[in-house]
Amino acid sequence: MHVRRILALALAGPLLLAGCSDPEPILPDPPTTSPSPTTPSPTDSETPEQESAEDFIRRWADENQRMFVTGDTERFLSLGPDCDDCKRIAETVDGIYDGGGSVEWDGWKILNLAPRGAPSANAFRFVVRSAPTRYRETANGPWKQLEGGRGVQLIVLKPVDSSWQVLESKELPG
């Protein structure tokens, strides 16, 4: 069966039902602006350097890879607290690691990246060359393989202070 179908069946039901069973709206966390522990705190006279959208997208792609191979979704999700697509990706990771599984993947090489639509949309199309993936869904389950290759991504950002957050992450027709 197609991987997408398996993941969709595994994830769509709980997601939809979870959304339905909660009577209270879940408000997203406010954007965080705290600096990383290794970065010195800026003084009042300093203006934090604006991170370019491209740099942010590359950082997001690196976090995506790190999340898949470590099972730690926190840092990835913090880059897009309002991004439902990101939550879906993180739930795939949780599903694998909660079952004792693991993932081996060297991530993406971004081949090109360009704005899509009006500049105000903060939407970007980028083409990736993905490394092959080896994963298993339980500790003793069979290893499965995805061949990797070329893929096209759409990412929609919103500016937050001197950086960005992800709003959407979708697959585009190649």
Binding site: L7, L11, F68, S130, L146, E147, R150, G151
Partner: peptide
């Protein structure tokens, strides 16, 4: 069956497998 991936490529990795096709 099959409609959700119409116009999108194959699943090259688990990120693509987790995503929907863009509008």
């Amino acid at each position: 069956a099959g409609a959700a991936v119409a116009g999108c490529g194959e699943d090259v990795d688990l990120t693509f497998a987790s995503q929907e096709c863009a509008d």
